[in-house]
Design a protein around this nucleic acid. Structure first.
Length: 871
RNA sequence: GCCCGGGUGGUGAAAUUGGUAGACACAACGGACUUAAAAUCCGUCGAGGCUUAACCCCUCGUACCGGUUCGAUUCCGGUCCCGGGCACCA
């Protein structure tokens, strides 16, 4: 046996051995139970980053552990290959996104292999390949015909200089990232997935996901945001009345057209069908509230800048028109809208309070979102913090209509709106109505019931369930994505591309120029004939959101070469659901929600099974515990049985201010940080010029902050095993991991110690692992610790998934073993037993070195054939 | 702004169901080995105090303030700070 540990040659040799044996090919034969272990596939950005290494090492540890436990493991890998960075690279380097992407894939695949991951490469997919996206287009046409996909106008970020739509990421401080121009909101037609139709099921399904972190289920539940409230209307007095702005007649009829449309919300009435008992009167301004008990405190109404009523009022009001224009400035990202200064302007219009008949002013508010609810809100300054601030600024009356419920004797004070004391009882809905006429004294439920009933009687409202979730807009005015399979015909309208013309192939030799999609400038792409009438037609040039590709790749892996459908039904039924899904916590909402949604879409399209179960779009309203079966996990309904959300790999950021305050981010590897005697950083300077740089926050490793640490350097210097060991040891998987070069050396040292201990033993001659004999007390103690360690490590890897403590337990065992040192035949057999166990226990984490150690301890046998040790 | 996490020695962390706080490492320091260095091995390592017969003992300590409990890093309420997400980064 070699006296010292040389990772480079061992790793190459073992990787070759695994390949020769096809060790990680998933059979799917059913001889052994299947275990589908999936890590979120990478975007081929160029090279692996630490987040990838962490993600795939966790997946590989779980895969190899389950393989040793007797499972037929499938661990596939592929490429989330469409996306914006390829277009950015194209702009920067004048290279087609396709070529850039394929060369990145080639390089990153080599890197993944050098990590020694037990991947079944025969199932590799890339989402930019036509044989993948063709099935996405196929599903699109089915959903379009069913009405699950539809077209409507939606707001985007518009760069008026580059004449292009910008992603939120490309809007920096309200300006286009390349042009520096002030970004505007603009409405364009887009295709939408009607995800709101599945809102109830997506919410109810969360209860079946026992194997998901609570945190993720809560986040998704809040995102879907089911609320119980009241939708009601203010009447808009007819034209000629006191409050309408002057311009010509026709306003009334215009209003009838634009305002009194049926609710655009994802909603269903609690009582009876929607619209029942609700007025069909025109001239109504609809709002939705979860606090109908405060309706008597309404002192103004605020509408979004894009609201039809605002548009109308602005026709005769230049100041208002200007304000609405101002509201259109800036991007569409909600975080920006929610944090900007709340501003408003009077429309001059007044509407009639449905219960008091009072005339209520209508204002335009820049904080009202057109995309949520009705695009208009009632404002109760006494009981809503935002309304309160707005009222103070613009001088609206503040009318208290809720007071704290009386407790004990004497009765409670009538508290005015005020900070924390107010919050506690108000937010918990633990108050009673005051200053509310006939509703005085009623509690929350009573007041809402009474008010909803009165509104309903007047035909001006009713209770309503509402979701925060919005439909999913998927049109992108970009080149490097899956073409939307629609043909626009003058006479037939939007016609889906027929199956025999699929896939609609994306030309791959194009270099975008940053000014809109190049497809729209390519007649050879968009000129076509209508499949219905045969007339001249124009092909859709928008592509799909790349989240669409990543919403079903997990299913495609079960049968990556299937040419008859999205998946082969038998393969899908054998492998799905994914037993263990692993990926970053940053995907907790969007990706994971979209994938759950897609699973249901595919189910309802009969993709997995010819038998399509009647799906519970509206689950039983029959109350608590009505149907426990709905709470049990069902692989036809949910794609991922267990979810592990790894924490982010974070690193410090450094920057210098460039021209115009633009930050130039500097990689940590190029920076030297000075610290005080307590280890706190005092300053930093660039290594190349010795000049100081600013220290930013510690953030997720990302290209945009240039704070990524290249894992390749560590693999090259210490080997993949050390990189894997360090990253698994330094923190439990769900916690965020702060990268530091210190500690890698320690991981390497540990592997050297394991190697040395095995070497010293093997050189004295291998023996049979302990069976029975005379043991010293020390030998007995060691053997006890050995089996306690096996038990703990098994539990840590299987149930707890805390690999850091599993490694620590092995370190303790090795420490005990090196201290032991007895050389009697019986003692040596205990040493043999312990060394074998260590090689087996560490195998999932550091497979190359363990495979080599095993070959020394048990010549002629292969670690690939060994099970996990048993305590 | 809203939703979700996190905060424990100089550092990463451990304490699995409310029961000995700091396992295992990193860094640092001291020692052995060496002509020397590296590597390796051994030892010390939360803060303060006490005591040298004793490496024995005492007090404080898990961001901060308060609560529940015989007992709280763990449960509850509040505050501060840091991170993730917010629908076109993936």
């Amino acid at each position: 046996m070699q006296s010292s540990y040389h990772p480079a040659s061992i790793e190459q040799q073992m990787q070759q051995h695994w390949e020769d044996r096809h060790a990680f090919r998933a059979s799917g034969s059913g001889d052994k139970p299947g275990y589908y272990c999936l890590s979120m596939f990478p975007y081929p950005s160029g090279k692996l980053h630490m987040g990838h290494v962490r993600n795939y090492t966790i997946g590989d540890v779980l895969s190899r552990y389950h393989r040793m436990k007797g499972f037929d493991v499938m661990q596939p890998m592929g490429w989330d290959a469409f996306g914006l960075p390829a277009e950015n690279a194209a702009l920067a380097n004048n290279v087609p996104p396709a070529a850039w992407t394929y060369s990145n894939i080639e390089y990153m695949k080599k890197q993944l292999k050098s990590l020694g991951l037990g991947i079944d490469w025969s199932r590799e997919i890339a989402t930019c390949k036509p044989d993948y996206y063709r099935w996405e287009q196929w599903l699109f046409t089915r959903l379009f015909n069913k009405g699950v996909i539809y077209k409507k106008l939606a707001m985007v970020n518009w760069d008026p200089v580059d004449h292009t739509v910008l992603a939120n990421e490309q809007v920096i401080d309200g300006r286009g990232w390349r042009s520096g121009a002030l970004v505007e909101k603009r409405e364009i037609p887009m295709y939408f997935f009607r995800i709101t139709q599945y809102a109830e099921e997506l919410l109810a399904g969360l209860d079946t996901l026992d194997g998901w972190p609570e945190q993720v289920r809560i986040m998704q539940s809040n995102w879907i945001g089911k609320s119980y409230g009241v939708r009601f209307a203010f009447e808009i007095p007819a034209a000629g009345g006191t409050s309408l702005p002057s311009p010509a007649g026709g306003i009334t009829s215009d209003l009838a057209g634009v305002i009194s449309q049926p609710s655009r919300m994802a909603s269903s009435s609690i009582r009876g069908t929607e619209g029942e008992g609700v007025s069909t009167k025109s001239n109504l301004l609809w709002v939705y509230t979860t606090r109908a008990d405060t309706i008597m405190g309404v002192t103004f109404v605020a509408v979004a800048a894009e609201h039809p009523l605002a548009t109308l009022a602005a026709q005769g009001n230049a100041r208002l028109a200007k304000f609405i224009e101002e509201c259109k400035q800036g991007g569409v990202a909600e975080a920006d809208i929610a944090t900007m200064e709340k501003k408003g302007m009077d429309t001059g219009l007044k509407v009639t309070h449905p219960l008091t008949g009072e005339q209520i002013p209508v204002w335009v508010g820049n904080y009202v979102l057109m995309s949520y609810g009705e695009g208009a809100v009632m404002a109760v300054p006494a009981h809503d913090e935002r309304d309160f601030g707005f009222a103070q600024k613009y001088g609206f009356p503040i009318r208290q209509v809720i007071k704290e419920r009386e407790k004990g004797s004497g009765g409670a004070e009538v508290l005015p709106f005020s900070g924390a004391a107010w919050q506690e009882w108000y937010a918990s809905k633990d108050g009673v109505c005051v200053n509310s006429g006939k509703y005085d004294g009623l509690n929350y439920e009573q007041a809402v019931d009474a008010i909803a009933a009165d509104l309903k009687a007047k035909g001006l409202g009713d209770k309503q369930v509402q979701f925060r979730l919005r439909d999913w807009g998927i049109s992108r005015q970009r080149y490097w994505g899956c073409p939307i399979p629609i043909i626009h015909c003058q006479s037939c309208g939007d016609v889906p591309v027929p199956d025999e013309q699929l896939p609609v192939k994306l030309p791959e030799d194009v270099v975008p120029d940053g000014a809109g999609s190049p497809l729209a400038k390519m007649p050879e792409f968009y000129e076509c004939t209508c499949p219905k009438c045969g007339g001249k037609a124009r092909r859709e040039t928008d592509t799909m959101d790349t989240f669409v590709e990543s919403s079903w790749y997990y299913a495609r892996y079960t049968s990556p070469d299937c040419t008859t459908g999205m998946v082969d039904k038998d393969a899908a039924q054998h492998w799905l659901p994914v037993d263990q899904y692993i990926g970053g916590i940053e995907h907790a909402i969007l990706h994971l929600l979209y994938a759950r949604f897609f699973h249901k879409l595919m189910r309802d399209e009969g993709v997995f099974s010819n038998i399509i179960p009647p799906h519970p779009n509206s689950p039983p309203s029959a109350g608590e515990g009505a149907n426990d079966a709905l709470r049990a996990f069902n692989p036809l309904d949910e794609p991922f049985k267990n979810l592990l959300t790894q924490g982010m790999v974070v690193a410090p950021t450094f920057y210098r201010e460039g021209k115009g305050g633009k930050k130039l981010w500097i990689n940590p590897a190029d920076v030297e940080v000075a610290t005080d005697d307590k280890g706190r950083p005092t300053g930093a300077r660039l290594k190349t010029d010795g000049q100081p740089v600013e220290i930013g926050g510690t953030e997720k490793m990302a290209k945009s902050k240039n704070n990524g640490v290249d894992p390749q350097a560590i693999i090259d210097q210490y080997g993949a095993d050390t990189a894997r060991l360090f990253i698994m040891f330094v923190a439990p998987p769900e916690q965020s991991l702060e990268w530091s070069d210190a500690g890698v050396e320690g991981a390497f040292r540990f592997l050297k110690r394991v190697w040395k201990a095995t070497h010293d033993h093997v050189e004295r001659g291998i023996v049979a692992a302990y069976r029975n004999g005379e043991l010293s007390a020390a030998a007995k103690a060691l053997r006890l610790q050995l089996h306690q360690t096996i038990k703990k490590v098994d539990d840590d890897m299987g149930r707890r998934k805390t690999f850091n403590t599993a490694i620590a337990a092995n370190m303790e065992l090795l420490n005990a073993l090196t201290r032991f040192g007895e050389q009697t035949p019986a003692a040596r057999s205990v040493t043999q037993e312990a060394l074998e166990a260590i090689a087996l226990m560490l195998n999932p984490i550091v497979p190359h070195v363990c495979q080599a150690l095993w070959a020394e301890l048990r010549p002629g046998t292969d670690l690939l054939d060994q099970g996990f040790p048993e305590a």
